[in-house]
Structure formats: C-alpha cells, structure tokens
Design a protein around this nucleic acid. Structure first.
Lengths: 231, 231
DNA sequence: AATACGAACAATGTATGCATTAATCAGCGT
DNA sequence: ACGCTGATTAATGCATACATTGTTCGTATT
C-alpha cells in the first residue's frame, strides 16, 4: 500500500495524500460529497491547498468537481470496475513481458517470491486481509519493476483504483486459489527470461480474472450493495 | 486534433488548454522553462488559475514543477518516446479487441473508412502534414469508440504525448506505407466482428511500429536533434 | 394549496497579500 | 585569482479578500 509519493510535505501534498488514501481505502465511499470549506476545516488548512489537492484528484479520476456542489468521490459502478480491471490487466501483461525481457536482479526476484509466499500463507490461514495486502504488493512489484516509467505511473493509478473496489467489497470475496499458481508461474517465466511464456500465462490469468470479476459483479448487482452505486 | 474538453470556460481551463495545446503542438519545446508570474502575464490572468492549470499539466505529465525554477516542459528523451509508444500501442490493441467485440454502428465504420481514405490520399500526394492529421484521427477514433471510458481517457493522453513527438520531428519522417494497410485490415476485422484477428493484426502492427521507431530513435540520437533532449 | 418571484446566503473562481526560503551576487578573505 | 560568506531579491506556498452566481428559503399571488 506504499505510495511512491515524494516527501514534499507541502500542505497541498498532504491534503492530496490524505484524501486519496481515504478514498482508496474505502473510508470515503463512492458518491460521498464535501465542500471545499468543510475539507479545509477538517484538514486544518485554508481552501487553497485543498483546492490544489482536489484538482489533482480530479485529474486522476478519484473525485469529480462540480461548480456548486463541491467534491464528489468518484462512483464505482460495475462498469467502472470492469473497465478499470481490463486496463490494469492489459498493462500488467505488458509489464510482465518487459520484465521477462530485461534481466531481473536477484533482489527483485526475491521480493516476488516473498510476496507469493505471503499470499500462500494468507491463503492457508484464510486471512483475506493479509492476502489482499500481499496480492497488492505482488502487483505493485510487477508494475514498478517493469522498466517503463510511463507504464509504471499509469498502471499504479489503475492498481489504486482497483484497490478501491477490493477495500469496499473484500468481505464478500474468497481469495481465488488459482491466482497464486499463476503468479508463481509468471515469476518463473520472468526468472527464465522467457517473455513469451510470461505474456501467455499472464494473459490467461487476465481472462480468468475478468470472468471471475463478471461473476462477482453480477452477484453484487443482484444483491444491490450500497457501496457500489449503479452508474 | 479535437480535444474532447468541456467548455467550462474558467480561466484555469483556458490556461490549461492553451498551455497543453502549445506543448502538444510543439510550440513549447521540451525543456522550455517559465515562471508562474511570466505565464500569468502572458495569459492575461493572475497566478491562481495559472497555478491550477500547471498542476493539472503536471499530473498529466506534460510539465514538471520544481519549487524555485517554475514550470519546465517535460523532456522527450528517446526512452520517453519508446515508453509512451509502447503503452499507447498496448492500449490500442485492447481497444481494437473491444471494438471488434461490440457491434459497431455504420456511422463509426464510415468514419474509420474516411480516415483511412484520407491517409491513402495523403500518402499518394506525399503530404506528411495531412497524413499525420488523418493518422491521428484514425487512432483517436479507435480509442474513443472502444467503449471502455477509462481506457479512452488514458489512451487519449498517451496519444497526445505521442503526438508531441510527431510535431517535433515530422520533417524527418516519411509516412510508413504499411500503416495504411494494417489500419484497413484492423477495421476490416472490426467490421466482421472478429476480435482475434483485430488483436493479431494490431499486435503485429505494434511490433513493426516499435521496430521502426527504434530505427528512427537511433537515427535521431546520432544526429543529435536539439528538440529531443537526451533524457 | 401550489406556483412563481425575489431576496438572502453561500460556494466557487480569481486576485492579492505575505511569510518563507532558495538562488544570485557582491564583498571579503586566503 | 578563486572560493566562501552574507545580503538582497524574487518565486513559491498559503491565507485571505472579493465578486459572481447558483441555490434555497420565504413570501405573495392566483
């Protein structure tokens, strides 16, 4: 869950990080509204840095700003979740390929192994919280070490958006078993320096992932979860 | 080159659009610097809306803001260009698949055909300017009609970034002939509703595209084009 | 009673003021 | 002559002020 944010500790940056964190962690739920003066009061600063933070958040798609109604936390309709996952998966396949193409350091590979081990452990312990955390770490690693800085920035944003969904619905989900197997296989292909396998494996994972997601979304839609406004 | 921007005509929005346009069109070259008071003067407004525009531009990766040195137009190193193209190509493959999966309207298909026809005409007339414009239109269409709104937003930003490169180096480039053939084939697959072909064709196009790009970049690097600072 | 009109209110968009702080430059010392 | 130190300058980050404008509430009219 570590944000690679700089330690520029201007108030605008703090506001940005605190608000984004609250949104990503699901503390500020989709549709929640707030006005600039409110936020300024809550964050203990003037409107100016709050405004700057909101502008950045809007640009990243975490909030919407409407002239008289202030900020609204971006909705997460089933469609949004589907679209976000699709883009993220697509970028991750690319990342996996890049990663297999370049030579990974032993340290990087060890980090991957550690994340997978943590996922396995969490799965055995039936601890979805820990599993989520380890899974996030795995995906963040995959993205951050792919070598394409532009891809890194974009994919990290999508990972955060995908995490919003998890934070809002983690209770409902059983951690998928096949995920760990796939992740391990991808890392194996990366270790071998076999881009074709890495791509194929992760692409197959992507397909299953999206199918499973569609099931979850159908289920959520019928159960009418209030945390997921129907867009 | 149409930006889907809203017609919110606040000064901040105008500043954002004008600056972004200048950057994308290559009028403001990579590395160019400016201070907030300068820009405020040039744009005929106070620092506040300029600042807000700069924050948005920074978030999109078009400028860098450093505490005492003001704004700097983002560099476009060969590496940046490579990375941007890679991400864009990857997103476009996804877009092509989505597009083939859903039913395209006749109007949309006609627009694709028109763009391709314009590219063909420009190629025969050896008019790189028009070819660029038509090619941009084709890619924008492919992206904007793919049906995944998140993908649309992200890919459009990458298309704009890719266009920076073209605007800065269009003189050097001969329009690639195979592009038109590929584009036509992709549209054909989309028309047939054949996602597998659409993906395969566009993926092959992507590979050639990147290979050609690497050649261009090698050439530029040796010729030491001042417009492309070595990152 | 319901609707329309108007007045008060409040949030935003923008301008401006101010303290902080980094960069530049002059002057001094070696 | 060169490097270091201190003072000046000016850009930023933030706070605040203000005009605009949409919203809401109350009142009056049909």
């Amino acid at each position: 869950m570590v944000d690679g944010a700089q330690d520029r500790s201007t108030q605008a940056d703090q506001a940005f990080r605190r608000l984004k964190d609250a949104i990503v962690r699901g503390e500020m739920k989709p549709g929640m509204q707030a006005l600039e003066p409110e936020l300024a009061l809550r964050l203990g600063m003037s409107r100016t840095p709050v405004r700057e933070a909101l502008i950045r958040l809007e640009q990243e798609g975490f909030v919407e700003l409407t002239p008289r109604r202030g900020m609204r936390v971006a909705a997460l309709s089933p469609r949004d979740i589907r679209e976000i996952t699709e883009v993220l998966a697509c970028l991750e396949v690319e990342a996996a390929e890049r990663l297999a193409l370049r030579r990974c350091t032993a340290g990087e590979l060890a980090q991957f192994d550690a994340a997978i081990a943590a996922m396995d452990a969490a799965l055995e312990a039936k601890d979805p919280e820990r599993w989520n955390e380890a899974d996030y770490r795995f995906h963040a690693l995959l993205i951050e070490s792919c070598g394409n800085r532009h891809l890194v920035e974009t994919a990290k944003q999508y990972l955060e958006k995908a995490h919003r969904f998890r934070a809002l619905t983690s209770v409902h989900r059983a951690p998928p078993v096949y995920s760990n197997v796939n992740h391990a296989a991808v890392v194996e292909a990366i270790r071998r320096g076999d881009p074709q396998s890495a791509v194929d494996i992760h692409r197959a994972h992507k397909r299953r992932w999206l199918r499973e997601l569609d099931d979850i979304l159908r289920h959520l839609q019928s159960s009418d979860d209030p945390a997921i406004p129907h867009g």
